[in-house]
Simulated scan of single mutants.
Amino acid sequence: MPAKSKAQQKAAGAALSAKRGETKVSDLQGAAKDMYDSMSQSQLEDFAETSRKDKPGHASD
């Protein structure tokens, strides 16, 4: 499932970086921390690889 907004894509990228051990988990905040805790690495890859072109800044509810 691709990310629906730029913010969601960026949060997934941060969480993925922590899953891979490239950044510290303690550096994560907000949605990135939640994504790290609740999603697998393959799910995070799907979100993070989504193109940001034509995506809104934030997803609408």
Rank of each mutant, 00 (worst) to 15 (best):
K24E: 03
K55D: 10
S26E: 13
M1P: 10
Q8S: 12
E22T: 05
D34M: 01
S60D: 10
A59H: 06
D34G: 06
L16Y: 08
L28Y: 00
K6I: 15
A12V: 12
M35P: 00
H58L: 14
S51Q: 10
A32R: 05
Q29R: 13
A31E: 09
Q9V: 13
G21I: 00
E45W: 07
A15L: 08
K10M: 05
G57A: 15
G30L: 07
A32E: 03
Q9P: 12
D54H: 14
A32D: 01
Q43N: 11
S51T: 12
M1Q: 15
K6L: 11
L28Q: 03
S60G: 07
K10V: 14
Y36P: 02
K33P: 01
A59T: 02
E49N: 13
A7L: 11
A11I: 13
K24R: 06
S40N: 04
A14C: 09
D46E: 14
K19I: 08
G57K: 13
D61V: 02
K4T: 05
F47A: 12
Q9F: 01
Q41S: 13
Q29V: 03
A7N: 08
S40G: 07
A12R: 07
R52H: 08
A31V: 12
Q8D: 06
A7W: 06
A59K: 12
D27R: 04
K24P: 01
S26I: 14
K6D: 12
F47G: 02
A31C: 06
E45V: 11
G13R: 13
A11T: 03
Q29N: 06
A18I: 07
S51M: 10
G21H: 02
D61F: 00
K53P: 01
P2Q: 15
E22Y: 08
G13E: 14
L28W: 01
A3G: 12
A32K: 04
Q9C: 14
D54W: 06
L16W: 07
G13P: 02
S26A: 14
S38T: 10
